[in-house]
């Protein structure tokens, strides 16, 4: 892990703020997101529905839907800012340097074209190889993601593949241009558990082999525990804890992260009751002052109502909570 962090990051977010300007005023959906991902590293981004996971991914690849916009902060890909690039340039980066995988494979696949045509086109747009070479590469990729008889299946249409097989094709497509970074937004959420396990294994193996960095967005802690090197936990548009996967999953520090982990039923034991965080995550138009978690926090202190805790180092990770403000 230390060798990883020594290299300069593939992706770095600095104080990213995303806002929606609506009739009812400006809603701040991401409020100062900062993290980085090293080459070959898998960063898991977890949090409940509406926490801002997908928006973070969308902001990185320049796919925020208007009226959403980056209001401030920076997105750096291999040290270069990409948050203010013209749309054309960003589109090129998106195909070449950043691969994407979404929950629904049909977002990434065109139903009218054969799987092979789509792979070959992606390969030829971004790498200077002949049609034949591209086809050979496409077949090799399909084999690598675990499609049986790839030399036959390459001429099939997306609808001829099962959901799990389609998601394998999408992984092949995302890797086709040999990107530095993959953004995978709930890549296994729509899949059955037995298929999910296979997809996760393929994604992890291929990125590891190629040294591709991965931002893995999911609400499934189990998937994170299996796959990620580090985890960022989001709440109400903020990262409230980030650190090595084992620390965050086994001994979370932030009261919300603790509650979240405790609320997940486990396979290996049956507690009398699941830990329960009262209430629900606030809506964007009603994010509390100070610590956004304070109305639900069992440890709330007077200052939590006014001051906002920032991410500060705790152990090998960082936590945004006044309880963990040791030292200064």
């Amino acid at each position: 892990m230390t060798t990883l962090s020594a290299k300069s990051p593939v992706l770095e977010l600095r104080n990213l703020v995303v806002e929606f300007v609506t009739r009812h005023g400006t809603l701040r959906a991401l409020d100062g997101i900062s993290f980085s991902i090293a080459p070959g590293e898998v960063l898991g981004v977890v949090g409940e529905s509406g926490a801002g996971k997908s928006l973070t991914g969308a902001a990185v690849i320049g796919l925020l839907e208007p009226p959403g916009r980056i209001a401030s902060g920076e997105v750096l890909l291999a040290g270069q800012r990409i948050d203010h690039l013209p749309i054309e340039e960003l589109r090129h980066i998106r195909g070449k340097r950043i691969g994407t995988i979404f929950q629904d494979p049909l977002t990434s696949l065109d139903p009218l074209y054969r799987v092979g045509e789509q792979l070959i086109e992606t390969i030829r747009t971004h790498l200077s190889v002949s049609e034949q070479e591209a086809r050979a590469r496409a077949i090799a990729l399909l084999a690598e993601v675990g499609i049986p008889a790839p030399e036959k299946r390459i001429d099939g249409y997306p609808h001829e593949f099962s959901g799990g097989m389609r998601q394998r094709v999408v992984i092949a497509l995302a890797l086709a241009a040999e990107p530095e970074l993959i953004i995978a937004d709930e890549p296994t959420t729509a899949l059955d558990v037995s298929v999910q396990a296979q997809i996760i294994a393929v994604l992890k193996k291929l990125c590891r082999e190629r040294g591709t960095a991965v931002m893995l967005i999911t609400h499934d802690m189990g998937v994170i525990a299996e796959t990620a090197d580090r985890v960022a936990v989001m709440y109400a548009g903020r990262v409230i804890e980030i650190g090595p996967v084992r620390d965050v999953v086994k001994s979370p520090k932030h009261p919300y992260a603790k509650g979240l982990m405790g609320s997940i039923p486990a396979l290996d034991e049956r507690p009398e009751r699941l830990l329960q965080i009262e209430g629900a995550m606030p809506r964007l138009n009603a994010i509390p002052q100070g610590c956004a978690f304070h109305p639900r926090c069992p440890h709330v202190m007077p200052r939590c109502h006014e001051a906002r805790p920032v991410l500060a180092p705790v152990g090998a990770g960082q936590v945004a909570c006044f309880l963990h403000e040791v030292g200064q």
């Binding site: 558990v193 037995s194 298929v195 999910q196 396990a197 296979q198 996760i200 294994a201 499934d220 802690m221 189990g222 998937v223 525990a225 299996e226 996967v245 084992r246 999953v249 086994k250 997940i264 486990a266 396979l267 290996d268």
Partner: peptide, 15 residues
């Protein structure tokens, strides 16, 4: 097939 949240490192048959 269920992801190992306990991170016990239990050995598993690939699905």
């Amino acid at each position: 097939a269920v992801p190992d949240l306990a991170m016990s490192g239990r050995s598993r048959q690939p699905v």
